[in-house]
């Protein structure tokens, strides 16, 4: 389902939580909405889910205006950030969700079995849903949303609550699992690595405003302003009337296309590699080397490819890439 947002404003009290001029989420795409805490990410999901009534502007599903209410909600599946279940087994919770969506009984069991296998929760079906661990609850939460087979699926921080090894495994497996459902997927995360691994499109939201939107390569490769670049993990180096932004992991040791002087202050030995920390023109930066650099000989010369370096005027707009 294709989603178009135009002139969306949402206020909570006197605060303008969302102010989106235009945003397009193509049919069948996976979009990650990223941004710092309080950026309006979850509010945007609530608006898309038809849970917020007092908004102005237009949200259109396949070209037809989706008004807040039951009709819109039926076309959306939403896994909340905090998994919430009613008392009873996991299976009873999945069944209740499908029953409320008026899925016939025979199809309900088939769908439950499908998501249970896919998300590895078959062994949890008889467990009490309110007594699951954080990771288990999150699995069931995502499985319940996808069992609804809605044209639009919203996942709010889908990997929150998992321990580190499970999270790593899911970061690898989840995109393929999600692709098996024919749905337009929107996920919210504050973790840029999660966004980059799971989604083909990125929307950077800050202060309720879309700072950047487009394909992963477009947004990540060409952040429109220094603040967006910083959020995406770029290292910002202050300069003469401009800010130089270096893409994450783009710095390497030795001379190159764009060179910088790294004033070293710490060296972390990580097995066969060395993570060298310091400052470039007062900004924290790091570079990973295969040999331990010599200390006490002044600044370390580091460099990046010009394609990985962007310059912004202090007014924030990019001047080169």
């Amino acid at each position: 389902m294709d989603i178009r947002i135009q002139g969306l404003r949402f206020r909570r009290g006197h605060r303008l939580d969302l102010n989106i001029e235009e945003l397009w989420l193509p049919s069948g795409s996976t979009t990650a909405i990223v941004g710092p805490n309080g950026a309006g990410k979850s509010t945007l999901l609530r608006c898309l889910a038809g849970l917020e009534r007092s908004l102005t502007g237009t949200i259109a599903f396949d070209g037809v205006r989706a008004r807040p209410g039951a009709e819109t909600r039926r076309r959306v599946a939403y896994a909340f950030q905090q998994p919430v279940f009613v008392s009873g087994s996991v299976e009873a919770n999945l069944d209740l969700a499908l029953r409320l969506r008026k899925v016939p009984a025979a199809e309900r069991s088939a769908r439950i079995e499908e998501v249970a296998q896919l998300f590895g929760i078959a062994g949890l079906l008889d467990r009490r849903a309110t007594r699951l661990s954080g990771g288990e609850a999150q699995r069931v939460n995502i499985a319940r949303a996808l069992a609804l087979r809605a044209p639009l699926t919203l996942l709010d921080e889908p990997l929150a609550g998992f321990d580190s090894p499970t999270r790593r495994a899911l970061l690898h497996d989840l995109p393929a699992m999600l692709r098996s459902f024919e749905t337009t997927l929107v996920l919210v995360t504050h973790d840029r690595d999660e966004a980059l691994r799971m989604a083909e499109r990125l929307v950077v939201l800050e202060g309720g405003v879309v700072r950047a939107a487009g394909s992963r390569a477009e947004v990540y490769g060409r952040p429109p302003d220094a603040a967006t670049a910083a959020f995406l993990g770029y290292t910002l180096i202050p300069g003469d009337g401009e800010v130089v932004a270096i893409a994450p992991r783009a710095l390497h040791g030795g001379p190159g296309e764009v060179e910088f002087a790294l004033e070293m202050d710490d060296i972390l030995e990580l097995g066969p590699r060395f993570e060298v920390w310091g400052t470039i023109n007062g900004a924290r930066a790091s570079v990973t080397l295969t040999e331990r650099p010599r200390e006490g000989v002044g600044a370390l010369v580091v460099s990046a490819r010009s394609v990985d370096v962007r310059r912004y005027r202090l007014g924030q707009e990019a001047v080169s890439g």
Binding site: A70, R73, V76, Y78, F80, Q82, V84, L100, R101, K102
Partner: peptide
Amino acid sequence: LPPQLPDLLQHLGA
């Protein structure tokens, strides 16, 4: 009860 329960029920179409 969990504060998100009304949202969940509303979202599911109850």
